[in-house]
Design a protein around this nucleic acid. Structure first.
Lengths: 118, 118
DNA sequence: CAGTTTACTTACAAAAAAGTAAGTTGCGAA
DNA sequence: TTCGCAACTTACTTTTTTGTAAGTAAACTG
């Protein structure tokens, strides 16, 4: 397995490259919400339990920098910002779904109640 | 999205549950090797560039505790230990492959050379 | 009896990710 | 003139993950 550099960072394999973009506690939950419809910042905040402003905004910014989502600001007061998924971001949805289904499968194996996810 | 507890830890969604088991720098590379054949500790060490003894052994232990791999010790000197994937671990392989393919796709989009992974 | 081999183990340090809490902006409403 | 709203921003701390380096065990070899 050869190494490669991207934006000054060394990666050892494609899994690491992918997870550097999709990984962490919050990115996949965000993409999962945006796959169905546009969300305002405050809607994401309400929809994703436990996330703090700091985490929400940093993850949104990183997803935007990676081209997975797009941010549209409206010049109104109080402010309004809408986040939506891009075509590139849509490429990630099947992967998120695969991971999610695997999680549900593992949860079922461990006897964790799954009904909320069906 | 409801929370749930497992082994004293709170999870917010199935993705987090799955990634708690498959995530980190080394677990998927290990499973990816074991999918084809049994490996001795030293073979994994040689095969996975940059991994330290500490990381290799801790990740192997966690994968074993989660039932994804199995460890067989031979009573010989110098020691010999073989690691192999379990049926449960095999369930993870398609997920690893999906993530890996997505990583390759992203790398291609960024103009990173992909030939080594085909 | 010192050296070699393999699979670990341990202590410690560094880096990365995540969390907490408080503050900022601009304007329309009360 | 103060208040509230929505979308951030900042400073700081804690937690988690990863890395580094050195050491151990047990038996066979020369």
């Amino acid at each position: 397995m050869p190494d490669f550099l991207y934006n000054g960072k060394a990666y050892y394999n494609p899994v690491e490259f992918a997870m550097d973009r999709l990984g962490g506690t919050w990115k996949m939950p965000i993409l999962w919400r945006l796959k169905d419809r546009v969300h305002r910042y405050s809607e994401l905040k309400k929809s994703i339990a436990h996330i703090s402003d700091k985490m929400l905004i940093t993850q949104l910014r990183e997803l935007e920098a990676d081209g997975f989502i797009r941010r549209e600001v409206f010049a109104v007061v109080p402010p309004k910002t809408e986040y939506s998924i891009t075509d590139k971001g849509r490429l990630a949805i099947p992967i998120v779904e695969t991971i999610r289904n695997f999680g549900i499968q593992l949860m079922a194996l461990e006897g964790i109640d799954i009904d909320d996810y069906k």
